[in-house]
Design a protein around this nucleic acid. Structure first.
Lengths: 332, 332
DNA sequence: TTCCTTCATGAAAGCGGTTGCAGAGCAATG
DNA sequence: CATTGCTCTGCAACCGCTTTCATGAAGGAA
């Protein structure tokens, strides 16, 4: 730290190993084509000097930054966090580094943020929610891959990795119906995708012959306070649902917790279903039935895609369905 | 996206504005020294071409990556998340970009991860927890600033930004005592810093003439399940505490929630205190008394430090105390 | 008028790698 | 023995920007 540091460069390694810089570069990037004993000499030199390749320089020269920008509205309390975490780990193990852009909940993303990110020439920009027009055009112009997460839009901008929210709603309706519940209440954020899940639920429920469920909308994303307010209203009301289908685990958790505090038993007096399969759902008492998305799988698909795109660009927009899994627990 | 993209370079902007590349560079980096009307020409050219500076190249040339690596054990359920979020926002607004390294909970950080991060030549590496020896030596050799977060070690490796955990323990003891509670039970993770808080509490409590509090240790970081198990034990036990001082908001939240579900009133039958001032504490019913750390302030101090260090390195290791605030709510 | 500053800009040498191309060495083939 | 085809390595031209140094113009002092 304190001695103005002498940084080791590739040239020095090359000199130490008595080979040309090009060969050292190949040692790192295409190990297969370096002769065994040359490689060994280089390995020793690298080790001995403690060389760490400068990826800034490498990225500049090769036009491969191995950087992925992830835009996320907020970190704490976000339903994406578990997935982002899994994604980061997966991408890391493939040599990609994730830079996080917290865009804030308001729809408009400050374009400075995006510009700063694009300045790093990321190989992909992952967006988790709606993208405003300005940002969208910026991204389009930039030429990076744009990955839309958590949804399968009919016309993806570039690539979408996600699942069908409609199908989730469907599955939830089936599950709830199968378990014998007949008076569901939907507690959902007013976001687009939650809306699609609700739609899926409603249509399926109707097809199953159920009566029109009640619905409560809350702001995006739902908070514990929303859940508490909901239970307040529920207690006060005369016609009670037998199950609450929530737009997120946090909502479900809040509903279940507050219901219990008011003396209701879960699931006998009130069943609860969440969404996201976060630890909150897993560790609640009782554990909450939820819908799991395989975050690691998303990360894997993403790094696969990037590796494949490197060099020859695979230009077809497309959707990758990673599916979901309804995990039945004792809350419903 | 689909047309193999023609990237705009600084040279093109220079040509369009009829100035040399050097001047365009100065326009971005030291705007003050460019003549007003030249600047205007450049601004137009930039706008018209939609130029976004390549920070990879810039960083390489200037040896200023404006990148900060943040090592964090885990993202979901981490007590750091709120702070990290605030930090990211603060750093972003100063032109820094954060890359996140999720190191996993085990103490040993895979050195590949660190190496990959260092390859990007970050200006600082922020570590939130203990660092194993291998990583430490790697960092030391690399010459980047190392920022230890959330603690004020007697001998910081480089720079520490944090607060006194001992003082937090002290403040908690005072608060609890002042409110008239006399039988506290400490529910703490077995981590080093939580241990210091506990120590602070215990010593202060003793100084206040209180009887030796009970203590329960859980794994790091505490989980909801830990909290639930704790309440189970508490219900079964004959000598009950009147207040539970928890090592994290999550624990406090779990304790309060489960206690209520068992029919205890908060705080009359059992008071609860948390740590971290997360939304969980704020939104719980009743809201939970907690200790807030100003994450944004940490981010600010960090970017200040980095700006100051750029160029002439300020070589003194030092500690920056950002303090904390005990936020009294109705749970205690 | 002459000389010295100050201000704004340009020329060019890097920053630390990557990669297309060419060549050396060597075994296999005709 | 000449040719061909491999495998491995080196040369050198970039990648896109920053920054030192030099220069010309303009303004002020002597």
């Amino acid at each position: 730290m304190n001695i103005p540091h002498e940084t080791i460069t590739l040239d020095q390694v090359a000199a130490a190993a008595r080979v040309s810089p090009a060969t050292v570069s190949r040692y790192f990037n295409t190990p297969g084509i370096v002769a065994r004993e040359t490689a060994e000499r280089i390995r020793e030199a690298v080790e001995q000097l403690g060389y760490i390749p400068n990826l800034l320089a490498g990225g500049l020269a090769s036009n491969r930054s191995r950087l992925v920008a992830v835009m996320i509205p907020e970190l704490s309390g976000s339903i994406f966090v578990d997935m982002i975490e899994a994604m980061i780990e997966e991408l890391s193990s493939h040599g990609y580094v994730v830079m996080l852009l917290v865009t804030g909940l308001k729809l408009e993303t400050p374009s400075d943020l995006v510009r700063a990110a694009l300045g790093r020439r990321p190989e992909a920009v992952v967006v988790t929610g709606a993208v405003d027009a300005a940002t969208r055009s910026l991204l389009r112009k930039s030429g990076t891959s744009v990955i839309e997460l958590w949804d399968l839009p009919a016309e993806p901008v570039d690539v979408a990795i996600g699942f069908s929210h409609f199908a989730v709603g469907e599955a939830l309706a089936r599950h709830v119906h199968e378990r014998g519940y007949r008076a569901p209440h939907l507690l959902m954020p007013d976001a687009a995708r939650a809306g699609v899940r609700r739609q899926g639920f409603l249509e399926t429920w109707q097809a199953l012959g159920g009566a029109e469920p009640q619905t409560t909308q809350v702001g995006t994303p739902g908070t514990l306070s929303d859940a508490h307010a909901f239970i307040d209203a529920l207690i006060a009301s005369t016609k009670r649902p037998d199950v609450v289908v929530c737009g997120s685990d946090l909502l479900a958790f809040g509903v279940a917790g507050e219901a219990r505090a008011r003396g209701l038993r879960i699931p006998q007096d009130l069943a609860v279903v969440g969404f996201g399969d976060t630890r909150l759902a897993r560790e609640a008492i009782p554990p909450i039935t939820s819908v799991a998305i395989d975050g690691a799988r998303v990360g894997r698909e993403l790094s696969l895609l990037l590796d494949e795109r490197s060099g020859k660009r695979d230009l077809l927009p497309r959707s990758i369905d990673v599916g979901f899994e309804l995990i039945a627990r004792s809350s419903c």
